[in-house]
């Protein structure tokens, strides 16, 4: 029997006054899948993501995330997901270890579990010697990798990544994707937004939002076939050009 999808959205809608930011989107994401959530600025991605994280109440429609309803069980949703964005990830004034303790604590992990997991994680990232270094002194690439590891520190079912690789150098960007693959191999579902179209190719499936609606959803190779395009960049340009919203 096929496992139940980890994210199920049905007719998910959010209106602000007369403006429909997210307009009846329906889709599902399977366990361990890397799901790329693409769209132009203002297409409604952030609003949709906030609803899925239990941070914003849908005006209409439903969604379950990790088996919990985003309206009625928002607190449970928050416990079972991880979140990382380029804009906010870590506390600069705290040391590496203090950040681990803080986030572990917030997600309800016990002291012993945090200590054990921290040793393992710092080893894996090659950051063992930087345990007591303040985060602000770390190179950006290390910060981003640490932030990602922190977002899955409590072993969530799903991790939401909002433009996680913006601004990092090309080598670090690729190392970051290796971490994503490793998490997905462990069964963590990855829901990721990006403006790098080569990264869209690394996803199992990709959805593209235009004017609040999902205009296309498929594997990268199927999308390229359908639009007769060589790259995901071309697919994106084709679809985003049809947008009426600015």
């Amino acid at each position: 029997m096929k496992a139940k999808p980890v994210i199920i959205a049905q007719g998910l809608t959010k209106r602000f006054g007369t403006f429909t930011a997210t307009d009846h989107i329906s889709f599902h994401v399977d366990k361990g899948e890397i799901f790329g959530f693409l769209g132009a600025n203002g297409a409604g991605k952030t609003t949709a993501m906030r609803m899925l994280c239990g941070l914003s109440r849908p005006t209409e429609g439903t969604a379950t995330v990790a088996g919990f309803d985003v309206c009625r069980e928002a607190e449970q949703v928050k416990r079972h997901i991880g979140y990382m964005s380029q804009k906010f990830a870590l506390y600069d004034d705290l040391t590496v270890y203090e950040n681990l303790r803080l986030f572990g604590g917030i997600y309800g992990m016990g002291g012993k579990a945090i200590r054990e997991k921290a040793v393992f994680l710092l080893q894996e990232l090659g950051l063992a010697t930087e345990r007591d270094t303040r985060v602000q002194a770390l190179p950006l690439g290390w910060k981003q990798k640490l932030a990602f590891s922190l977002s899955i520190f409590h072993e969530p079912k799903i991790v939401f990544l909002d433009e996680p690789t913006g601004g990092v150098d090309p080598v670090t960007r690729r190392q970051f994707w290796e971490l994503i693959y490793r998490a997905a191999d462990r069964g963590i579902t990855v829901f990721v937004t990006t403006h790098y179209m080569d990264e869209a190719e690394y996803c199992d499936r990709v959805s593209i939002m235009v004017d609040g609606q999902i205009e296309a959803l498929d594997t990268p190779s199927a999308l390229k076939r359908r639009f007769g395009a060589d790259t995901m960049y071309d697919v994106f340009l084709r679809l985003a050009r049809t947008a009426r919203r600015t």
Partner: peptide
């Protein structure tokens, strides 16, 4: 200074 960072591919073009 980085006028196109975080901007989607269409707007960037």
């Amino acid at each position: 200074d980085e006028p196109t960072t975080g901007v989607d591919p269409v707007s960037r073009k």
